[in-house]
């Protein structure tokens, strides 16, 4: 495959940081995903995409262990999350960051407290060091000076950025994003894309993003998988630019070319 050649040529590593094997997700009797297999490589921006209701967010929540897998295995950094105990899981989670669709900032805490929380709880750093860390993280997402704002005093885009600042507080090796640009205007959404790219380039964080925003996909993705509702699994995998031009599956080309299916 072409994109594999590019990866092997040294653009990115092919050392998997996340391995998903035969993942099946079920809610009650309703099977959402069946036997999904893929790998996320260290340092890449990996996008999970697909139409509404195809199970993108579900897949993400299963990958980070928020929902229990019906069957299959997810290994992150060599730790199998389906069999990990609380201690291992805690350690693993501290190495991950997650930006939720609704930002999920703690409403009763200021931005400073939101970002400082993981630092205060999981490190033994003195306040003297935590303080500048929080300030630089807020600065990295363009929210310098907003330390004392409550989440309710921010716009949607600012909340998303604050969510990222909190997610990167502990310098995680993997960052998960659930529809980061949903509900944002094109400019804010482009700024967010840039932030994601800069973080990836600057810190080398692996990013797993769920989205269906075409612009974002072409702007940031190294590799994508595309999920489909009727197949309950992956219908395409690879470089989005290649898939747009050369995929043989009409559902894939329709998606990338923004064409209605009927």
């Amino acid at each position: 495959m072409i994109e594999m050649n590019k990866l092997e040529a040294g653009v990115l590593s092919t050392d998997p940081i996340i391995v998903v094997e035969n993942l099946t997700a079920r809610f009650g009797d309703d099977t959402i995903l069946e036997n999904v297999n893929f790998e996320v490589y260290r340092g890449e921006i990996f996008i999970i995409l697909g139409g509404s209701g195809c199970g993108k967010s579900t897949l993400l929540k299963h990958m980070i262990g928020l929902h229990e897998l019906a069957s299959g295995r997810v290994t992150i950094n060599g730790i199998d999350i389906t069999s990990a105990d609380d201690n291992e899981m805690g350690k693993l989670r501290r190495g991950m960051g997650m930006l939720f669709q609704s930002s999920a900032l703690f409403g009763s805490m200021t931005l400073y407290e939101n970002v400082a929380l993981p630092l205060m709880e999981f490190t033994r750093l003195p306040l003297k060091i935590i303080d500048p860390i929080v300030k630089t993280k807020l600065g990295m997402v363009g929210l310098s000076g907003y330390e004392n704002h409550l989440p309710s005093e921010l716009s949607g885009g600012m909340k998303k950025r604050a969510g990222i600042a909190r997610a990167i507080a502990l310098d995680p090796t993997v960052l998960f994003f659930d529809e980061p640009s949903a509900g944002l205007d094109p400019v804010t959404s482009a700024e967010l894309d840039m932030l994601i790219r800069n973080l990836n380039k600057g810190i080398g964080t692996t990013m797993v993003i769920v989205t269906h925003e075409l612009e974002s996909i072409f702007n940031v993705a190294h590799r994508i998988i595309m999920l489909d509702k009727s197949k309950k699994g992956i219908i395409a995998e690879g470089d989005p630019r290649e898939l747009k031009e050369h995929s043989e599956n009409p559902r894939v080309t329709n998606f990338f070319n923004r064409k209605a299916t009927h």
């Binding site: 929540k61 980070i64 262990g65 928020l66 609380d86 899981m89 805690g90 350690k91 989670r93 501290r94 991950m96 960051g97 997650m98 939720f100 669709q101 609704s102 999920a104 900032l105 703690f106 409403g107 929380l117 993981p118 709880e121 999981f122 998960f176």
Partner: peptide, 18 residues
């Protein structure tokens, strides 16, 4: 309950809190 609706509880879990 409201924290649950706003995904704040999920956020706590992913951050490694009980």
């Amino acid at each position: 309950g409201t924290m649950k609706v706003n995904e704040e509880v999920d956020a706590l879990i992913t951050m490694g809190f009980n």
